[in-house]
Amino acid sequence: MTKVVALEDENLQLKHAVHAHATVDQAIGVILALGGLTPDEGWDVLRSISQRTNIKLRHVAELIIEWARTGDLCSDIRRELEQHLGLGTRAVRDDGQDT
């Protein structure tokens, strides 16, 4: 029975990892579309925002995806995103459009 429990736990962890990876990939896509970057550059921006704001990478990715849908993005992440993409202050509007 413990072998089954261990396999179920491993399966759950793998499902979580796949979901987290998909979330990060979607956020990188948003960054690529906004900044005209390569996938590697988008990854670097996402990772840097996470490190500089001290917010877990997966959570930063979730916030960026939510921003793409709703136009709402917290000021810390907005500021970092603008800085990394060279957009200048307030260049990323609440609706996700460049000004």
Rank of each mutant, 00 (worst) to 15 (best):
M1E: 09
M1D: 08
M1N: 09
T2Y: 05
T2G: 14
V4G: 00
V4A: 13
V5I: 15
L7V: 02
D9R: 13
D9Y: 04
L12M: 05
L14V: 12
H16R: 15
V18W: 05
H19E: 14
A22M: 13
V24K: 14
V24G: 00
Q26G: 12
I28V: 15
G29Y: 07
G29R: 05
I31Y: 01
A33D: 14
L34C: 00
L34M: 13
G36S: 06
G36Y: 04
P39C: 03
P39N: 05
D44I: 02
L46C: 07
L46F: 01
R47V: 01
I49T: 02
S50K: 02
T53P: 03
N54D: 11
N54K: 14
I55E: 06
K56F: 01
L57N: 01
R58G: 00
V60D: 01
V60T: 09
V60L: 04
A61M: 09
I64D: 03
E66H: 10
A68Y: 06
A68E: 15
R69D: 14
R69T: 01
G71L: 08
L73I: 14
S75K: 12
I77W: 04
I77R: 02
R79V: 08
R79Y: 13
E80N: 07
L81S: 04
E82W: 05
Q83E: 11
L85K: 01
L85E: 07
G86Y: 07
L87Q: 10
G88T: 08
T89D: 08
T89W: 10
T89G: 00
T89Y: 13
R90G: 03
D94Q: 13
D95K: 10
D95T: 10
Q97E: 11
